[in-house]
Nucleic acid binder design. Structure first.
Length: 278
DNA sequence: CATTACCTGCAA
DNA sequence: TTGCAGGTAATG
């Protein structure tokens, strides 16, 4: 999924459903490699009796704040989803973790590709996770000056920079392509080469694509679901992502697919001119 | 910096 | 059968 808007949507829909709920225990865990810390045995021992105080997000981590100082951190990676299910709802072969609540409902971690990860963190572990990530793009801390300070000292291309979670938290392949198209910048432009006006435009575009993604409850290409099990609708509004061979909504030029930073990358070759070779 | 690995499903 | 997919960590 799951980039910032999808994780944010999942966190909000979890918060609305399970804030104040008590965990009965782990009902299913059939892929133990998803538990990074502590050991699966410790997870089994620590979760029963915990109350879910809140649900939130840091970067692409969904955070369930529990009592007794614990935080259950979930990363959905490529194909994960976290949903709250009614007591009778059956699981399937891709449901790898089920957390039962005392009221009979259950939280399903569904993940066909098994890339998703779970950590139960104490305050120190949570602080380390926080410190490993960069500025949140939808907070006041991410202003044009802060963005300029990120770009100016780096010669790396825009796309890999925007995907770097240590610098900027939450952007992924879809929203980077969309933000670059909106700001009419080529993904291979060197970060330090942007004029002040280009930096301001890209800064605004990043906020715009993320806010729109949240407003549309995320993008569902295959597996992503909100915490209610619903699909998002943001995929209907993509301008370039996944639109190879179709006309650019701005100028009509055919959208092309490149590979940048080892990721499929979609651009309008007219609106987003390639940088001159150095 | 580039390549490979981790997994499965789906479309070409 | 091959290549591709919303992410990231671990290798040369």
């Amino acid at each position: 999924m799951p980039e910032l808007p999808e994780v944010e949507t999942a966190a909000r829909s979890l918060a609305a459903q399970v804030t104040g709920s008590r965990i009965a225990g782990i009902e299913k865990l059939d892929w133990e490699r998803m538990v990074e810390t502590p050991s699966p045995a410790d997870l089994y021992a620590l979760l029963p009796g915990r109350t879910i105080a809140q649900a939130g997000r840091r970067a692409k981590w969904l955070l369930l704040t529990l009592d007794a100082g614990w935080t259950l951190a979930v990363h959905l990676r490529m194909s994960g989803s976290l949903t709250v299910q009614a007591p009778a709802e059956p699981d399937d072969t891709h449901t790898h973790l089920i957390i039962a609540l005392t009221d009979g409902r259950r939280i399903f971690f569904h993940d066909p590709r098994k890339f998703g990860r779970v950590r139960l963190l104490d305050a120190h572990g949570l602080a380390l996770l926080d410190a490993a990530h960069g500025v949140e793009p939808l907070t006041a801390a991410f202003d044009v000056a802060a963005f300029t300070a990120l770009l100016q000292p780096r010669r790396t291309a825009l796309k890999p920079l925007l995907l770097n979670q240590q610098l900027l938290a939450g952007m992924g392949n879809i929203y980077v392509d969309e933000a670059l198209w909106l700001s009419q910048l080529h993904p291979l432009r060197a970060a330090c080469s942007l004029a002040a006006a280009e930096t301001a435009t890209l800064h605004a575009a990043i906020k715009q694509v993320l806010e729109q993604g949240i407003a549309n409850e995320g993008s569902t290409l295959r597996n992503y679901r909100t915490g209610y099990g619903r699909s998002g609708s943001n995929q209907h509004y993509f301008k370039v992502y996944g639109r190879t061979g179709q006309p650019c909504p701005r100028c009509g030029t055919t959208i092309v697919r490149l590979v940048v930073a080892q990721r499929g990358t979609h651009i309008c070759p007219q609106c987003q001119p390639a940088p001159l070779p150095a």
